[in-house]
């Protein structure tokens, strides 16, 4: 009946315990799992072998911003509304640098924020893990490790016994 639950959740009191538990679960061969913490802990992402990809989006955003900045000013000053100002060429690019710079930052920043939200799947109002007992403490002072039932090694009894061996405060089921 392992399909009837989303997974098993273990509750820990300290960040050190959840890091250690995640490492041991990884060594025991579990892959479909996630740790939940009140603040970022770098080791967890390393143990889960997760690498953030947001930087590629930010780079693309920045390049697009720079191109937009130059194209906009070139179109306005050379094609749509050419006007001689102080005897300068229409494409007086040194004067365009400031706006190119600002739009580079603007597009890259927007890519960073919305890219992060998108890659994390937000907004995500419902998630099974919110059903777990005491999970509202995850944003206060408790640390959680969930092993999902979709993991091939997941077995309700054996996984529970494994999680119990990691010295948690409590192990409970997560309803889907």
């Amino acid at each position: 009946m392992s399909e009837s639950v989303y997974g098993l959740i273990a509750k820990f009191d300290t960040p050190e315990e959840v890091v250690e538990a995640t490492r041991r679960a990884r060594e025991a061969g579990y892959r479909k799992m996630e740790a939940y913490t009140p603040f970022p802990i770098e080791e967890l992402a390393e143990i889960l072998e997760f690498k953030p990809k947001i930087q590629y989006l930010v780079f693309i955003g920045g390049v697009l911003g720079a191109i937009t900045g130059f194209a906009l000013q070139y179109y306005a000053s050379v094609i749509a509304y050419p006007l001689i100002i102080g005897g300068r060429p229409f494409n007086s690019w040194p004067a365009f640098i400031v706006v190119i710079f600002e739009l580079t930052i603007l597009f890259a920043g927007i890519a960073a924020v919305f890219g992060m939200l998108g890659l994390n799947g937000f907004p995500h109002p419902y998630h099974p893990v919110f059903n777990a007992k005491d999970f509202n403490l995850v944003s206060r002072d408790k640390f959680f490790l969930v092993i999902e039932s979709s993991d091939p090694r997941f077995d309700k009894e054996r996984t529970r016994a494994f999680l119990e061996s990691l010295n948690p405060e409590e192990v409970t089921e997560v309803q889907p």
Binding site: L44, P52, M116
Partner: peptide
């Protein structure tokens, strides 16, 4: 929900 992967991206 404070997921480790989300924190890393964040």
């Amino acid at each position: 929900r404070g997921a480790a992967r989300h924190w890393a991206q964040y």
